[in-house]
């Protein structure tokens, strides 16, 4: 059952991602992107990361895609919507290198058992406290410093965006 869900959602995510590249209109690309993000959220649920699935839907499929669609509509990109390509030789080299990388990574990921030593989050801990409580416990103790740094980064990002987009007078 899990395998069926994984294959369907993973397949739809891959196809939607391909359509992001091949869609003529930028707005269509953005909408395929939303579908891809929803399917990735389902994959997170299958991996028992429900909190991340929620974040994926709210932050990615909600906030970031809203930003992008807003920018597309504001910039009125209708006139250069056709697919443009870079110079032939650089494109061929780039795609060739990507195909080699793809085969190598597939070989590694399909080949062996890649798990290492077991971490502290045992099934018993999750069953006692719940996954969310365990995550927040770690987030506000071991990961407190990165958490604060990221909040400063977000504030700086928002201020930077406002300063950049402001018209000079």
């Amino acid at each position: 059952m899990e395998l069926v869900f994984l294959l369907i959602c993973g397949g739809v995510a891959v196809i939607a991602s391909l359509l992001v590249i091949f869609a003529r209109s930028t707005l269509h690309s953005a909408l395929w992107m939303v579908l891809s993000f929803f399917m990735i959220a389902v994959v997170y649920v299958l991996l028992h990361a429900q909190f991340l699935a929620m974040l994926q839907v709210i932050v990615y499929a909600g906030a970031i895609m809203m930003f992008i669609v807003y920018a597309i509509m504001m910039l009125n990109l209708r006139h250069d919507s056709k697919v443009k390509t870079a110079s032939k030789i650089s494109k061929v080299i780039g795609i060739g290198a990507l195909i080699v990388l793809f085969l190598e990574l597939m070989l590694v990921s399909l080949g062996q058992n890649l798990t290492a030593i077991q971490g502290p989050v045992t099934d018993k801990l999750v069953a006692t406290y719940g996954r969310m409580a365990v995550i927040s416990n770690f987030l506000f103790s071991d990961y407190l410093l990165p958490f604060e740094v990221v909040s400063i980064l977000l504030t700086a990002g928002v201020v930077g965006a406002v300063v950049l987009a402001k018209r000079e007078r």
């Binding site: 891959v14 991602s17 953005a30 494109k91 795609i95 990507l98 990574l105 597939m106």
Partner: peptide, 19 residues
């Protein structure tokens, strides 16, 4: 891996900054 490679290929081939 498939998603990563698709994204990288798109970043190489497309010229539209938002895509």
């Amino acid at each position: 891996v498939a998603l990563f490679i698709i994204g990288a290929a798109g970043a190489i081939c497309r010229r539209n900054a938002i895509v």
